[in-house]
Structures are given as structure tokens and as C-alpha cells.
């Protein structure tokens, strides 16, 4: 499935300044792994020992994947996947 991954502005130096990265994936986790293949600097920023870091939130079409099936959440063609820093609000 073709999916657009949104990169938060302060992290764009690690994606060649691209605001979005197009990948092909069946799940949220796969999409992030594909992103990291294309832009290896993102790997250690998103993951710690294979686990998504504590202050990274992932949304598929504006829904937090923790309310879906986490990294196993299925992706449909043309879905949007947004990487959102969690330290906001309150």
C-alpha cells in the first residue's frame, strides 16, 4: 500500500528536508521501517532496541495507533501516517 509519512518539522534535517516521505507498506510498523531504510538517521531517533520511543506518537489518518493495533495497525492505500512528538499540551 502506498502511504505518505509526515515528518515533524524539527526532524526534517534527517530526511533530506522532506516534509513527507512516500513508502509502500502493509502496516504502520512496516511503513516506519521503510522510512528508516530510505533515511537511516531516523532509525535511532524513532526506535530504542526495536521499541518505538516513549515520546513518539504515530497516527494513521488522525487516529493514534495505540487505540488501534499499535505497529501492527493495517494500512490502506493512500493512508496518511503522521509522526507526532508527544511532549505537547497540558
Amino acid at each position: 500500500m502506498a502511504v505518505k509519512v509526515q515528518i515533524p518539522t524539527p526532524m526534517r534535517p534527517h530526511t533530506g528536508n522532506l516534509p513527507t516521505v512516500d513508502v509502500s507498506a502493509a502496516t504502520a510498523g512496516e511503513a516506519l521501517r521503510e522510512l528508516c531504510k530510505l533515511h537511516p538517521a531516523m532509525e535511532q531517533r524513532l526506535f530504542d532496541n526495536g521499541q518505538l520511543r516513549r515520546f513518539v506518537n504515530i497516527f494513521i489518518n488522525d487516529e493514534d495507533i495505540r487505540y488501534l493495533e499499535n505497529l501492527d495497525t493495517k494500512i490502506k492505500d493512500s493512508d496518511d501516517l503522521a509522526i507526532i512528538p508527544a511532549v505537547a499540551g497540558g
Binding site: 524539527p10 526532524m11 531517533r45 520511543r53 515520546f55 513518539v56 511532549v87 505537547a88
Partner: peptide
């Protein structure tokens, strides 16, 4: 004006 670490998304 940035609120998170660009290495691990941690709060600044």
C-alpha cells in the same frame, strides 16, 4: 522555540 530533542523526541 522547540520543545523536543531531535535525537530521541524527549522533552526539553
Amino acid at each position: 522555540p522547540v520543545n523536543f530533542c531531535q535525537d530521541d523526541f524527549g522533552p526539553l
